[in-house]
Amino acid sequence: MQYPQPIAKLIEGFTYLPGIGPKTATRLAFHILDMKEDDVLSFAKALVHAKRDLTYCTRCHHITDTDPCYVCEDMKRDQTTICVVQEVRDLIAMEKMREYTGLYHVLHGAISPMDGIGPEDIKVVELIKRLQEDDNKQEVIIATNPTIEGEATAMYISRLLKPTGIKVTRLAHGLPVGGDLEYADEMTLSKAIEGRREI
């Protein structure tokens, strides 16, 4: 059965989202049709504003509506430590813990030769440049995910930073291997930060 074009395009739009298959996309599209028009317009505006008004911090590459972001702008934070994470969602997970008070650097991915992703495809060069421009950094905590790609990225960054004399640590493996930081609970993240080790 063919749907009218407006609903077919809406269903197709939902299938672009990760984890949304045709059945879920159809259910979401029909849910939108059942919503009040004001709610649909509000939802559409939220999508447009998120796309238009958000950018990435030029220092740490966190998603933000101001540049620099609220983390980089906060001078009360420990300016000598940078925690390197793979994705923005990982930074937000770390912030929920409320124990880490240093700065961040978001890589926007991990090294994965199988997927054709090398160091030049993520924000490694920007991290090195940032460390070279600011000589008060004493520790870099590598908080990439405990996956093969995350470990490869951690080792690569560690090797690059060893000659600089900056202390390089890795989150302790209280995190499940193969898991993602964004799904870890606050206690697990807290223990991982406490038990970080030099690599």
Rank of each mutant, 00 (worst) to 15 (best):
R77S: 07
T64W: 02
T55V: 10
I63H: 01
Y56N: 03
L47A: 11
T66M: 06
L54R: 13
F43D: 06
V71H: 01
V40E: 02
L54Q: 11
C60Q: 08
C57L: 07
R52E: 15
V40Q: 03
T66C: 01
C69G: 00
R52F: 14
R59K: 10
L41N: 14
D74A: 05
D38E: 13
S42V: 11
Y56F: 05
T80I: 10
M75E: 14
C72M: 07
L47E: 12
D38A: 13
H61S: 01
R59S: 09
V48C: 15
R77E: 10
C60W: 06
L41Q: 14
T55M: 10
I82D: 03
T80W: 05
D39V: 06
P68N: 03
K76G: 09
K76Y: 10
H62N: 11
A50D: 05
A44P: 04
A44F: 11
T64V: 06
C60D: 04
V48A: 15
S42Y: 13
H62Q: 08
R77M: 06
C57N: 03
T80C: 08
T81S: 10
D39R: 10
Q79K: 15
R77V: 06
Y70I: 08
E73A: 09
Q79R: 15
V40G: 00
C57P: 02
D53M: 13
T64E: 03
L47D: 09
I63F: 04
R59A: 07
V40T: 00
R59Y: 06
D38C: 05
H61G: 02
R59I: 08
H61E: 03
D38G: 08
D74V: 05
T66L: 02
R52Q: 15
T64K: 02
F43L: 13
R52H: 15
P68D: 01
I82A: 01
L41I: 13
S42G: 14
R59M: 09
C69W: 01
D53W: 08
D74T: 07
I63D: 00
V48P: 05
D78Q: 12
A46C: 12
K51Y: 14
T64G: 03
A50I: 11
D67L: 00
D74Q: 07
L41Y: 12
R59W: 06
R52Y: 15
K45C: 10
R77N: 09
I82Y: 08
T81K: 14
V71G: 01
S42D: 12
V40P: 00
Y70M: 08
D53I: 12
D38R: 11
K76I: 04
C57Y: 01
A44Y: 11
D67M: 00
Y56V: 04
F43N: 06
C60H: 04
Y70W: 04
P68S: 02
C60N: 05
T66A: 05
C57D: 03
T55Y: 03
P68C: 00
I63K: 02
D53K: 14
C60P: 03
D67I: 02
Y70F: 09
H61M: 02
A46F: 11
K76R: 11
D78E: 11
H61Q: 08
L41S: 13
V40F: 00
D65Q: 00
V71I: 09
D74E: 08
I63V: 05
V48D: 15
C69Q: 02
T55E: 12
D74I: 05
T64P: 02
R59P: 01
E73I: 06
L41A: 12
T80R: 13
